[in-house]
Design a binder for these strands. Structure first.
Length: 271
DNA sequence: ACTTCGACCTGTTGGC
DNA sequence: TGCCAACAGGTCGAAG
């Protein structure tokens, strides 16, 4: 579920509920996420106040007096603020309890997510320090992408999904952005001209902004527990549409595999 | 420095 | 209906 738009929507959705709230308790039901949830997390967090919640890539950064809690939602994670008396369900692994008896609850069926504590500058943390640019920031430009692609023979789709180049472009939006830009996902990154990179950069920003705009709907549907985001799904041009007609030219959408991920594209519109 | 691939998990879906 | 394989929105880290 979580690509950058969902993570950003989550951040915005919980920010006002948790900032300036004091933590009174932490309940860890399952510590085996991607990396173990810190053993003494309850001891570490109790009594601290969350001063802000920021996002870097798909990581959420909860700032407190003595450090930062890093949260990644992996493939299936979600965060919700619920009343403390709402019973935890099967995959509700961590509760952060606040002084007003609300709870920040992490749910993650596949457990590819993470919750880590760091006392250093979080941007210097091992997992964050080598991340690429933010796709919606001004420094994500055609020139940047073009320069980064020199000598890179990897396919452009895998290239834009590489978080060391640019963060937050997941499989759905990589497919969608390449369609909008008219670029075939298999082209070697180094073979794209600067103007085509400009089209791609523009498409990535557009797709992510649109998705954030409809992210609220996506999130609400998801957290309600009925899975797929109905609203956003209707905006998809290629993802999940194998064999269906291209919305621009009618040619059946193709499905291939790149690096064990599904790539959908129009053989005619994308060259 | 770059590329490929296995690994981590559970839940859902589609074919037989 | 049951069973099994394939697949799912991520990304790290080892090995080549």
């Amino acid at each position: 579920m979580p690509e950058l738009p969902e993570v950003e929507t989550t951040r915005r959705g919980i920010a006002s509920c948790i900032t300036n709230r004091q933590i009174t308790d932490v309940i860890v039901r399952q510590r085996n996420l991607r990396w173990p949830v810190p053993f003494r997390l309850r001891k570490t967090l109790a009594g601290q106040t969350i001063s802000s919640i920021q996002r870097r890539g798909k990581y959420l950064l909860l700032s407190m007096q003595s450090g930062t809690l890093l949260i990644h939602l992996g493939m299936s994670g979600s965060l919700r603020v619920v009343p403390a008396n709402l019973p935890a369900e099967k995959h509700d692994h961590v509760d952060i309890v606040f002084d007003n008896h609300s709870v920040l609850r992490l749910r993650d069926p596949r457990r590819f997510g993470a919750m880590l504590w760091t006392q250093q500058n979080p941007l210097q943390h091992k997992l964050l320090k080598d991340l690429g640019v933010e796709p919606l920031a001004k420094d994500f430009t055609a020139e940047y992408l073009f320069n980064a692609a020199r000598k890179r023979k990897v396919a452009i789709k895998q290239f834009i999904m590489d978080s060391h180049i640019v963060v937050g472009v997941g499989n759905i939006y990589a497919n969608e952005a390449l369609f909008l830009a008219g670029i075939r996902p298999t082209i070697a990154a180094k073979n794209l001209s600067l103007p085509r990179m400009q089209q791609l950069v523009t498409a990535i920003k557009l797709v992510l902004k649109d998705a954030i705009r409809s992210g609220g709907t996506t999130l609400r549907d998801f957290t309600r527990g009925d899975g797929r985001p109905g609203y956003f799904r209707q905006q998809l041009n290629v993802y999940g549409r194998e064999g269906d007609p291209c919305k621009r030219c009618g040619t059946p959408i193709k499905l291939i595999r790149q690096g064990q991920r599904a790539s959908y594209y129009c053989h005619r519109c994308q060259r």
